[in-house]
């Protein structure tokens, strides 16, 4: 969370920084593990890090709402893995990802830490989050195009009129 770039207004700056971080954490969580492993492998100057929380798998109860907008209820659980790391400069990164892949949670935490480091953000964005985000957007667009091809116009047949 790089607050120093917004010295004027603390509150909006904080929320903007949080939104940016949420966006990259979402991209990392949705990434295939092998893409994160490849990106990590391709990185020069890999940072040293230590675990604040070793990778572990647990459950999150997924909730829905009655009618989509009403009372909350428990739909069922999902597997989630998490990890927390600290870089040598003290920046802490968190990984929270669906599934049971410890390596993925760990890499998500490392990249989350690096993306908070203003010196390394541009590099990590170019190598990791931007290509991943583009691939995810492309997949979503493909799903939408395929669904759109099944859009149907039903005609109502009215008798005696």
């Amino acid at each position: 969370m790089n607050m120093t770039t917004h010295p004027q207004s603390n509150e909006p700056a904080k929320s903007t920084a949080t939104d940016t971080r949420r966006a990259w954490m979402a991209v990392l969580a949705k990434a295939p593990t092998d893409a994160l492993v490849r990106a990590w492998g391709a990185m020069s100057g890999k940072p040293a890090y230590r675990h604040l929380r070793r990778p572990e798998t647990g459950l999150v109860m997924v909730r829905g709402r009655a009618g989509g907008t009403g009372q909350r209820f428990n739909l069922g659980e999902m597997t989630v893995s998490r990890c927390a790391v600290a870089l040598e400069n003290g920046i802490v990164g968190h990984g929270y990802v669906a599934g049971r892949d410890h390596r993925k949670a760990e890499l998500a935490a490392i990249f989350d830490a690096l993306l908070q480091d203003s010196d390394r953000r541009a590099e990590v964005e170019a190598l990791v989050t931007r290509p991943l985000s583009e691939a995810q957007a492309a997949r979503k667009a493909e799903r939408r195009r395929k669904a759109a091809a099944t859009r149907v116009e039903f005609l109502t047949m009215v008798r005696d009129r």
Binding site: E56, T57, G58, L59, V60, M61, V62, R63, G64, R65, G68, T69, R72, N74, L75, E77, M78, T79, V80, R82, K140, R143, R144, K146, A147, T150, F154, T156
Partner: peptide, 30 residues
Amino acid sequence: YRTTLPRFGASEPVDTGEMVVRRRISATFK
């Protein structure tokens, strides 16, 4: 299997209005 894992907590309610829809039909409104 699920009884062997700890629970981290509960999610925010999912928003089905924001779904990336692959199928959506209504039998009441054309």
